[in-house]
Design a protein around this nucleic acid. Structure first.
Length: 420
RNA sequence: GUGGGCGUGGCCUAGUUGGUUAGGGCACCUGGUUGUGGCCCAGGAGGUCGUGGGUUCAAGUCCCAUCGCCCACCCCA
């Protein structure tokens, strides 16, 4: 086997694609309930867009982007930057004070693949631009909760606030001096992190670092009055909407643009990739990208992680799409009639198939069965002589002759009682 | 980038201390029913044992190299 997909790039085969469609349909339904509009975005953008929004020194920008170096363009590693670019470029903020937008599609990061992590992966991305109101934060988390729950998934919601440019520097200093005092006890990774990204030390998974960090200064105790008020109203909103959540003062975001509210829906069933949906507020980002001073908040859901969870739940991948009718033509003459009858029925909206390779009846019945046909129309010499067909109900095994001259009865019988 | 694990027909896999034509299951095709699906039975097609080299009378099995995939670190949806 010479030609194969690239490492970290996956084909989604028909059976699984059906499950993907179910997830996406459910999401679109909920996005509509929450008054979101779809926006479709390009996959390639100028490299600069991601560097400026995600952060020059983040892992994503430093070493994970698929970039055409000579052209200075990059395959998007996430959707928020592209979405804000489009939002600013087309002046969407003048059409409505608050824009609620979603987009679904592939993202690309050159990481080492593992369970729940691919180089091309798919996200459903949701953004609310134009409101700094804490109720918006609560509403967004409520939507995430609703979607995951309607998908039948068991996840937990963790919430934190990262403060804002007014309060974070002071906290950062505080944390830095704390980490310096414990430097010797930290793992090697955390020693490095305390310099490159001190906040990251807070969510190190090593037990030893965890216990050290227990005593670390908490961002929640360093919030400025505005951020503290905002965060308390977010929680108030969550309570009003009946959303279960827990505070996680150690939760940190990987992208630089987040401020104030951040949240993560996590599961214990995905190996080490526990986040199925994560996001937060990014007031100031629109401005940073050259737009007006407009606040925003958003989150992204990882499609393959959702699908993995659904597969684990042994949710049956449904069989082939249901088919209304399979036409079994025996012999050349019958086959010719079947071929054009199939076209007429398809024009009328009937889901029809037939065997085009002149196989025996038994083989054709098998094909019909496998394809999920609810009816089979058999046309052989006997039927041909009378210009009729033998219509068999595959479930009840009843069959009756019906005239071929008038296809209305065929349409009606075979399309009533559809399940899909 | 760093660890660990695994590569046998399309898929899942058996293969004893190296020893005849590499075995089974799923799926596929044909027949049992010369015009009737699912279940059953019989038969059939399908394999450079990831690749290259080495040891040996003999390699799927042992050694070396290489490629690929998976899991974990890291990072993140």
């Amino acid at each position: 086997m010479k030609l194969k997909a690239l490492n970290g790039f996956k084909d989604i085969l028909p059976g699984e694609a059906e499950l993907w469609r179910q997830v996406e349909d459910r999401a679109r339904d909920i996005f509509a309930r929450f008054n979101f509009a779809e926006i479709r975005l390009p996959i390639l953008e100028k490299t600069e867009l991601f560097a400026r929004s995600i952060g020059e020194t983040t892992d994503i920008v430093e070493k994970e982007m698929y970039t055409f170096v000579d052209k200075q363009i990059t395959m998007r590693p996430e959707a928020t930057a592209s979405l804000l670019r489009a939002y600013i470029e087309h002046g969407l903020y003048v059409q409505k004070p608050v824009q609620r937008l979603f987009t679904i599609g592939p993202m690309f990061r050159h990481e080492r693949p593992q369970q729940g992590r691919l180089r091309q992966f798919h996200q459903m991305d949701v953004e609310i631009l134009g409101s700094a109101n804490p109720r918006v934060d609560a509403e967004l988390m409520a939507m995430g909760t609703m979607l995951l729950s309607e998908l039948g998934l068991c996840v937990s919601l963790e919430v934190n606030s990262l403060g804002c440019p007014a309060c974070r520097p002071a906290f950062r200093e505080n944390l830095l001096s704390f980490l310096e005092s414990r430097q010797d006890a930290l793992c090697d990774d955390c020693k490095r992190r305390s310099i490159t990204n001190p906040l990251r030390v807070l969510d190190c998974k090593k037990p030893n670092c965890r216990s050290i960090v227990e005593d670390a200064p908490s961002i929640l105790e360093h919030l400025c009055p505005e951020c503290a008020a905002h965060f308390s109203e977010v929680q108030d909103g969550l309570r009003q909407l009946g959303i279960d959540y827990s505070l996680n003062k150690f939760m940190v975001r990987g992208l630089d643009y987040y401020c104030r509210t951040t949240f993560e829906f996590t599961t214990t069933d995905l190996g080490s990739q526990s986040a199925v949906c994560a996001g937060g507020r990014y007031d100031g980002l629109v401005e940073q990208l050259g737009g007006p001073k407009i606040p925003g908040i958003g989150c992204a859901m990882g499609m393959e992680r959702l699908v993995l969870l659904l597969l684990q739940k042994e949710q049956k991948i449904e069989g082939p799409a249901e088919m209304d009718l399979f036409i079994a033509g025996l012999g050349d003459a019958a086959s010719r009639i079947a071929f054009s009858l199939m076209q007429s029925l398809r024009k009328e909206g009937v889901r029809v198939a037939m065997d085009l390779d002149n196989r025996g009846l038994k083989s054709q019945m098998k094909q019909a069965d496998k394809a999920g046909a609810r009816y089979v129309l058999m046309i052989g010499d006997d039927e041909l002589a009378k210009n009729t067909g033998m219509l068999r109900n595959m479930a009840t095994q009843e069959q009756q002759g019906i005239p071929l001259g008038d296809i209305r009865i065929l349409i009606e019988t075979t399309t009533t009682g559809r399940h899909v």
